[in-house]
Design a protein around this nucleic acid. Structure first.
Lengths: 146, 146
DNA sequence: CTTTAATCCTATTAAATCTATAGGATAATA
DNA sequence: TATTATCCTATAGATTTAATAGGATTAAAG
């Protein structure tokens, strides 16, 4: 009874998806009062501990600020307009797409491919990379919430 | 010493990549004489047994024909012009991208998401799906080899 | 100054998936 | 009948993702 997978199934890891949802949640807050993990977790149906690690990553990478102790929590420290989806996805990593030989930031040569300029698969994936990146580069958190 | 992954790393599984390479190899044959797995395996640096299972899948899905016994092997039974990349990728499955809730063919609801029309992540991924699918739908095996 | 509430941090487990291999069954050729 | 090659199913190994555990740290409140 396992549903067959589509070619689009795992572009977005749960980690990244949850991260974006948390960012959306935080950007909808009226003021910049810290919000507790628990609140976001419940509202968005995300495992408390898993979300904790995700928010930690977002904080360490300059998206969120935090406050410890009573009344503590997380809050956005960037303007949603300045948070590009591509940067969020890079930070939360998760394998989203394609082959390493096509990566701009973390290029890696394919073991099997002697000449990638002559590799038709490579060139196809470059095309997909560019179109996808174009979308993620031009979509901000602010765009997502409107 | 593990290289950090990019957001584009695993869009294309090795299975699919090898499958496309095999199809390209076969489409470059002069005549339709069967080619043995071994020959493709060596030429493209693909594990013999792994490739065997991939070719089997391609045959069962109408891309290849085969012949057993001496002088046997695989051969293309469709015109490269009629082999769309999207259909190859669907057949060889491999998790390529995105979230199941965005799949046209194998839709699946997200556990965490009560209303996906209101889900900003969902809508973002629909956009990426469409742009990627557009490329794969309009790229044939024939396009790849020229 | 003690209690309580929250994040911080590292490590580890569990589950899923992809990659690859094994080994024999089947079929075709010579 | 020997040889060559695909057919087929099962399984092992490796990698990655998802999730959990448990305590350390910090801050507020009384």
């Amino acid at each position: 009874m396992i549903a067959k997978r589509s070619i689009f199934e795992h572009m977005l890891s749960k980690k990244t998806k949850y991260g974006i949802k948390a960012l959306i949640y935080l950007s909808k807050q009226e003021d910049k009062t810290p919000v507790q993990i628990e609140a976001i977790s419940k509202s968005e149906n995300i495992s408390r501990k898993f979300l904790e690690s995700i928010l930690l990553t977002l904080r360490k990478n300059g998206f969120l600020g935090s406050k410890k102790g009573k009344g503590g929590g997380y809050y956005l420290i960037k303007d949603p307009v300045d948070i590009k989806m591509s940067s969020v996805m890079r930070v939360l990593d998760g394998p989203i797409a394609m082959v390493p030989c096509v990566s701009l930031n973390f290029y890696e040569k394919c073991d099997d491919c002697p000449d990638e300029n002559a590799c038709a698969v490579h060139n196809l994936m470059v095309e997909v990379r560019d179109s996808t990146l174009h979308i993620f580069n031009n979509k901000s958190l602010a765009d997502l919430i409107k």
